[in-house]
Amino acid sequence: MAWWATSYRKATLLLFGLVLLAAGLLTVFDLRLASSQAITLTANQVIEPVPLDDPFAAVWNQASPVEIPLSAQEVTQPMGGGSARAVTARALVDEKRIYFLLEWEDATEDLSLASQEAFRDAAAIEFPSDGGQTLPSFCMGQTNAHVDIWQWKGDWQADIDRGFASVAETYPNAHVDLYPFRDDKTFYPGWAVGNPFSQRERVSPVESLVAGGFGTLTSADVQRVAGVGRWQDGRWRVLFVRELAVGDDDGVRFSLGGSTNVAFAVWDGSRGERDGQKSVSQFTDLRIGREAESGGISTGTWILIIALLSGLLAALVAASGWFILGRGRRSP
């Protein structure tokens, strides 16, 4: 067999091999090229103060809104959701804090979870816990790549605005003659064991959580995310705020000029959406500050780029081999 033929086959094999290797690496490290949505949310740097209690403040005109498509959660039980088709995300950053503003359409303002049939509206932002070194599954992360989640809840917002809803407020016509031990936590087990849902004094409508796979979602030990949500004319606007500088174990780290990934979720309470029944996005790129570097490409993307470059190189080698050989053949 002519030498060129062997060389050509070698090149083809090399190409296949590299592609396989890339695929294998992606599989082994469970990396997903979720950023392929090709949307980048940039947290523009602002100098004037961002009000912590007004999601409609004028300073938000300085943000660059990005429309993030959402779809029903169809990966694990309980599946469903999908009533919100998109969420508009904005982000700002200053010397001290990072701010996110989510805006989406929802015909009803669902603030109560109190009755047997009611569910609340909610919204969440998710980040890779390690800042995007390894891109976790956008569905609650995985054991070797956790996610940080900030969830704003309509009922927590109502707790802050109006106080923790009592049964008498939920059911104004109900009559109860006496509650013995009314303020004794012993008789409110959720409250007594420190379940965040049962606590009557709320500091923030946003809960900070960590997860490493389905069913592992756990409230974070340190709660540092503030926020506010307001419903107006069939739209929610929810503001999330956190200090940039936090302790080592206080949640996801952001740095001015850096980048990471971010995903979003929205729940419509009046449609019975809760837990996995939600409208979700995949991970999208997040750049922090105007001077955000062009880098910040995730490991998965790097592997793909290397694979493609190697493939290109192999193709070039093969092509030049064919060209050389073609010339050789024509010569006597």
Partner: peptide, 10 residues
Amino acid sequence: MFRSATRVSE
């Protein structure tokens, strides 16, 4: 059953 006073089920 869902208990509104603690917002968890019992």
